[in-house]
Design a protein around this nucleic acid. Structure first.
Length: 273
DNA sequence: TTGCGATTTCCTGATT
DNA sequence: GAATCAGGAAATCGCA
């Protein structure tokens, strides 16, 4: 067993994945979480499209929601356009996750305008969780409220009522009780090339074949996410091999550090994004 | 409390 | 010889 110093990892990672990246597994006060992820000088109104996607990813991580449940193409917009969306727009675009996104964004807008006062609210992430039953739809499918009607609520962002009316998203977490699965973590790195500084790369995008470039760095990143500093590539690869049986991954014979998504892996195809 | 799923840990042996 | 792969076995952890 070996514990690799974080400096090794940090040296291989960009600032996005580096020590400034606050991992969602650690509970924290909402404003703290917000300020750590998104500094006040980076107001959502001025985000680029990429920053919007980064924010989406962070919120998904924060709430341990499978990122494939979000039709990212519905958020192909910059920060200015994002900020002009209404609460209903978020529900239309992201279904049951919409309210979570709405509140997160609203809080960010607030923190940009009133950074001092917001700190007194003590709103924890779970208070921003979706109050609605899970309404699942295939990844990539645009949410249609006429098919999956949701109760309309009009919570006031950052209001004390949020504490009462919002509970943990049991239904959302149901499919993923321990947070992001390893294969989803790998997939998300692959799907976010900007956040993937040469850790893993596609070998054959259409076939779902990918290769680890920095296997130990990926393992450390996974360990960091799971709050396990002793994670190694050897252990990570063992978990990867268990996916063969479940057909989440397929063997790629004769090639080291190369894996292929199997029939049960979702959300990696370009058409699914 | 219990059972379960998803890892995590450790191990041995094979392969590159 | 080191790194990686393969897979068995047991332990751990969070959740229902």
């Amino acid at each position: 067993m070996s514990v690799t110093p974080t400096t090794t990892l940090d040296s291989q990672l960009t600032t996005t994945w580096g020590p400034n990246n606050s991992y969602p597994d650690v509970p924290m006060v909402m404003s703290g979480y917000t300020s750590r992820l998104w500094p006040h000088d980076s107001q959502p109104q001025f985000w680029s499209k990429y920053q919007v996607w980064e924010w989406l990813q962070q919120v998904m991580d924060m709430h341990q929601i499978d990122a494939s449940n979000i039709p990212f193409q519905n958020f192909d917009m910059d920060g200015h356009q994002l900020c002009s969306l209404s609460y209903q727009d978020f529900i239309r675009a992201a279904g049951s996750v919409g309210p979570i996104l709405f509140h997160s964004l609203t809080e960010l807008k607030w923190s940009g305008q009133y950074h001092v006062e917001i700190g007194q609210l003590e709103l924890k992430p779970e208070h921003f969780s979706c109050p609605f039953p899970d309404v699942s739809y295939p990844p990539g499918e645009i949410y249609d409220p006429s098919i999956h009607p949701l109760p309309v609520a009009s919570p006031t962002p950052s209001s004390p009522d949020i504490k009462r009316s919002y509970s943990r998203p049991h239904q959302v977490k149901k499919h993923n009780p321990r947070g992001t699965h390893l294969w989803e973590f790998i997939r998300d790195i692959l799907l976010n090339p900007e956040r993937n500084p040469g850790l893993i790369k596609w070998e054959d995008r259409t076939e779902g074949v990918f290769r680890f470039l920095k296997s130990e760095a990926v393992a450390q990143l996974w360990g960091k996410k799971k709050n396990n500093s002793s994670m190694t590539y050897e252990k990570l690869s063992r978990a990867m091999r268990y996916y063969y049986k479940r057909e989440i991954l397929e063997r790629v014979d004769g090639r080291r550090l190369v894996y292929k998504f199997g029939r049960n892996a979702r959300g990696w195809r370009e058409s699914e994004k």
